[in-house]
Amino acid sequence: MRTRLLAAVLSVVGLLAVTSCAGSPAVPAKVTLGFTAWPGWLPWQVAAEKGFFAVNGVDVELKYFDSYTDSITALATGAIDANSQTLNDTLMSVSGGARQTTVLVNDISTGNDQIIARDGITSVGDLKGKTVAVEKGTVDHYLLLLALNRAKLHEGDVQVVSTMTDSAAAAFAAGHVDAVGAWAPHTTTALTRPGSSPLTSSAEFPSSIPDTLVVREQLAKLRPDLVQRIVNTWFETLGWIAHNPDEATAIMARRAGVSPQTYRAYQPGTTFLTKQENQKAFSSMKLHQEAAQVATFMQQTKLTTRLAPVDGLFDASFVNAP
């Protein structure tokens, strides 16, 4: 899906931070919201197709990205107003100077991010000296580093092949690398390789990968009414999905490019947070503490060159609104 080097992303973000002093992108009446084929963000497709944004009085242009990295860069450079991205990827952007605000936790990854290996590799420790395809600087690169750290290995102990996630999954399925880091639905492609199986997944690192809605800081400050309506739309969409599971699954599976049967298999690996669970996560400082831990780990493992600031990164007002 995405094939940008971390240094390139950070250089773009850094340039934005410098130029933003002279002026920021205008606050729009229409909000452009980015998302990619992650099960925790596909309810946005349901919201668009069922007209829930309009019902809540907000004009949203839903922009689907084949490349997740492109969506992160688009938000960091002001090309879009809001994006669906993980906590660690948001920290990557703010470490480079982007001004962003997290307003909602869509879900926690509970198994849909996986490190998958070929037959004969049965543990993370067995990856030493092996080739691992992963999109560097993004969430499953982060998962790989978490897994290596727990196995008392370092990134230098494996041969990382950096490529877009869909390409990584295809390369692994074709037998070109020993292992791959990928998320659903790309895990389905990877697991077509005979004898392959997951070595570890996000299920083994509880709460480490929250998937969130992030907006430009200026949008949150100057048009909080628009952000609030989008957050309201999210929770209403989840309610509709709960009462119309078959129709909702068909919509999300079509956007993901898989069958409804395949899509249903992803459901245990994505745990959606209710409004009440969001309120608890924001008010208990749990998100802030998790972000501080992730930021430290990312600096230690050289995913970022400096510690990402977490103060002001979260705004609880939108999930706390009646």
Results as ranks from 00 to 15, higher is better:
residue 58 V to K: 01
residue 79 A to K: 14
residue 42 L to V: 04
residue 89 D to H: 01
residue 211 D to S: 12
residue 167 S to F: 11
residue 141 H to L: 08
residue 201 S to N: 03
residue 143 L to N: 09
residue 170 A to P: 00
residue 215 V to Q: 06
residue 299 Q to Y: 02
residue 182 A to S: 11
residue 302 K to M: 03
residue 4 R to Q: 11
residue 51 G to W: 08
residue 242 A to P: 00
residue 41 W to A: 13
residue 28 P to H: 04
residue 244 N to F: 10
residue 148 L to V: 12
residue 6 L to N: 13
residue 25 P to G: 10
residue 80 I to F: 02
residue 49 E to S: 07
residue 148 L to S: 08
residue 56 N to D: 10
residue 243 H to C: 01
residue 26 A to H: 02
residue 29 A to I: 06
residue 238 L to M: 15
residue 61 E to K: 11
residue 220 A to S: 14
residue 94 V to M: 02
residue 257 G to H: 07
residue 180 V to M: 05
residue 172 F to H: 09
residue 112 N to A: 09
residue 254 R to K: 15
residue 319 V to S: 07
residue 152 K to T: 10
residue 223 R to P: 02
residue 35 F to I: 01
residue 24 S to N: 05
residue 260 P to T: 12
residue 250 A to Y: 01
residue 282 F to D: 09
residue 313 L to K: 13
residue 249 T to Y: 03
residue 110 T to W: 01
residue 81 D to G: 02
residue 151 A to W: 07
residue 152 K to Y: 02
residue 32 T to E: 06
residue 119 D to C: 02
residue 34 G to C: 05
residue 306 R to D: 07
residue 231 V to S: 06
residue 150 R to A: 14
residue 68 Y to H: 14
residue 282 F to T: 13
residue 153 L to K: 08
residue 133 A to L: 12
residue 105 V to E: 08
residue 192 T to Q: 12
residue 48 A to Q: 14
residue 194 P to W: 05
residue 113 D to W: 05
residue 27 V to W: 00
residue 159 Q to A: 12
residue 318 F to L: 09
residue 262 T to I: 15
residue 72 I to L: 14
residue 191 L to Q: 10
residue 75 L to S: 02
residue 277 E to T: 05
residue 305 T to S: 12
residue 292 A to S: 13
residue 167 S to V: 14
residue 129 G to D: 12
residue 126 D to E: 15
residue 290 E to M: 14
residue 225 D to K: 03
residue 297 F to W: 06
residue 209 I to E: 06
residue 103 V to N: 05
residue 51 G to C: 05
residue 112 N to K: 03
residue 317 S to E: 07
residue 48 A to V: 01
residue 293 Q to C: 00
residue 45 Q to I: 02
residue 18 V to C: 05
residue 132 V to K: 08
residue 220 A to T: 08
residue 245 P to Q: 12
residue 43 P to C: 04
residue 19 T to L: 13
residue 238 L to N: 12
residue 44 W to K: 01
residue 45 Q to L: 02
residue 107 D to R: 00
residue 302 K to P: 00
residue 286 K to G: 13
residue 13 V to P: 00
residue 231 V to C: 04
residue 109 S to V: 09
residue 144 L to C: 09
residue 139 V to A: 15
residue 272 F to R: 13
residue 227 V to T: 07
residue 95 S to F: 02
residue 312 G to S: 13
residue 119 D to N: 11
residue 206 P to H: 08
residue 105 V to K: 05
residue 189 T to N: 01
residue 64 Y to F: 15
residue 38 W to N: 10
residue 46 V to K: 04
residue 140 D to A: 04
residue 80 I to D: 03
residue 307 L to N: 05
residue 162 S to V: 07
residue 171 A to F: 11
residue 176 H to S: 13
residue 130 K to N: 08
residue 18 V to M: 11
residue 208 S to Y: 10
residue 10 L to H: 10
residue 262 T to L: 10
residue 35 F to P: 00
residue 207 S to Q: 12
residue 132 V to A: 11
residue 137 G to S: 09
residue 271 T to G: 01
residue 151 A to Y: 08
residue 253 A to S: 14
residue 316 A to L: 09
residue 76 A to K: 04
residue 135 E to I: 09
residue 167 S to M: 13
residue 299 Q to R: 14
residue 288 H to S: 15
residue 37 A to Y: 01
residue 131 T to K: 14
residue 83 N to R: 03
residue 195 G to F: 07
residue 155 E to F: 04
residue 12 V to W: 06
residue 40 G to C: 07
residue 195 G to T: 11
residue 8 A to G: 11
residue 283 S to N: 15
residue 284 S to I: 13
residue 128 K to Y: 06
